[in-house]
Lab assay of single mutants.
Amino acid sequence: MAAAAAAGAGPEMVRGQVFDVGPRYTNLSYIGEGAYGMVCSAYDNVNKVRVAIKKISPFEHQTYCQRTLREIKILLRFRHENIIGINDIIRAPTIEQMKDVYIVQDLMETDLYKLLKTQHLSNDHICYFLYQILRGLKYIHSANVLHRDLKPSNLLLNTTCDLKICDFGLARVADPDHDHTGFLTEYVATRWYRAPEIMLNSKGYTKSIDIWSVGCILAEMLSNRPIFPGKHYLDQLNHILGILGSPSQEDLNCIINLKARNYLLSLPHKNKVPWNRLFPNADSKALDLLDKMLTFNPHKRIEVEQALAHPYLEQYYDPSDEPIAEAPFKFDMELDDLPKEKLKELIFEETARFQPGYRS
């Protein structure tokens, strides 16, 4: 834990890192770190609560700039109880001085990944967590956004079992017609939660990839272990087919990539493993919904509104309290091709509203 900075004593240090967030945020305490930044909790002297502050230093890398800009653009436009918001952003007053960006968010005690390492969940908890994931996802999908990296560590939890989806750095506007060349190379989302079509096709992607990830998360809540822990690309596919069985001819016809289709045709026939054999203690309604989410063919996979209306979630289902976005989200430009200098300018502009004396 960093010592509390005395008023006016300059930035606090946390594990050798400068955290320049005073005077409003003090009493910093280390939480963890990701690929390009550290997260601390801090005391907000204005709202009198502890908050989470993520320090991001992305400006050396085009990919990190892209992810940072995506996350900020999306989260500043989203407003939903099951999606983490941005409360404040701290950065230098000029673009030349801006080396880091500090993002202030609600402090959540833990995440689903940490929880599943230590606790076996009751059916009631599984049901409530799944409902909140789908409630947040309904809003995301209504904005025409794909999260693309749903996994237990991106689901934040607090002691009252509130759940918030975080990390929109890989999110995209849904565009089933656009052929994202190089899709697989830039697709760094965790393999275990990846839909089979991501490994088999490169053309376009749809909201059904997020539903697949939610199915993987439900299976993990039922058993405290990942359902498809593939060691590499082909191993991942083999794990999936080992449980779902061989795809039907109709399902194979959806695979545009001939090499991928021929690979699947070359494999020995596998039978589907019954879900109640894998999860003998699970609620039968939970397994019915799991089956509809972990469907090989993305066109037959359940959609988020149908999933919310499934009998497993009937005690929570309330369409009048499951809000959607006001308007579909649009990125003005494809960020993939922009140089990091341009992305830095866009991050600077996007964060201006939090600067003292800002006038829109």
Rank of each mutant, 00 (worst) to 15 (best):
A5M: 09
A7D: 13
G8L: 08
V14P: 12
R15I: 12
Q17S: 02
V18S: 04
D20Y: 15
G32I: 10
Y36G: 15
V39G: 00
V46E: 08
V51A: 03
K54V: 11
S57I: 13
S57F: 15
H61C: 07
T63L: 13
T63D: 14
T68L: 12
R70F: 01
E71P: 13
I74L: 11
L75K: 07
R77E: 00
H80V: 06
H80L: 15
I83W: 00
G85M: 12
N87W: 03
D88M: 01
I90K: 04
A92Q: 08
A92D: 11
I95T: 00
M98H: 11
V101L: 15
Y102C: 05
M108R: 07
E109S: 05
Y113P: 04
L116S: 13
K117V: 01
Y128Q: 03
L130Y: 01
L130H: 00
Y131S: 05
I133S: 08
R135Y: 07
G136P: 01
K138R: 07
A143T: 11
L146H: 04
L150E: 06
P152D: 08
L157Y: 04
K164W: 02
L170H: 04
A171C: 02
A171K: 05
P176A: 06
P176C: 08
D179K: 07
D179Y: 15
G182Q: 03
L184I: 06
E186P: 06
Y187M: 02
A189V: 14
A195W: 09
D210V: 14
I211N: 15
I211A: 08
S213W: 04
S213R: 15
V214Y: 07
M221T: 00
M221E: 07
N224C: 08
F228Q: 00
P229M: 06
H232A: 08
H232C: 01
L234S: 09
N238R: 02
L241G: 10
G245T: 02
P247Y: 07
N253L: 10
C254M: 00
K259Q: 12
L264Q: 14
P268K: 06
H269A: 00
V273C: 03
P280D: 05
D283K: 02
S284A: 11
K285L: 13
L287N: 09
L289K: 04
D291A: 12
D291M: 01
K292A: 03
P298I: 01
H299T: 13
K300S: 04
K300Q: 07
R301K: 13
V304N: 06
Y312V: 06
Q315L: 14
Y316T: 09
Y317D: 08
P319A: 01
E322V: 13
P323T: 13
P328N: 04
K330L: 10
F331G: 00
F331Q: 02
F331M: 01
L335A: 09
L335Q: 15
E341D: 15
K344S: 09
K344Y: 09
K344P: 10
I347D: 06
Q355P: 09
Y358H: 12
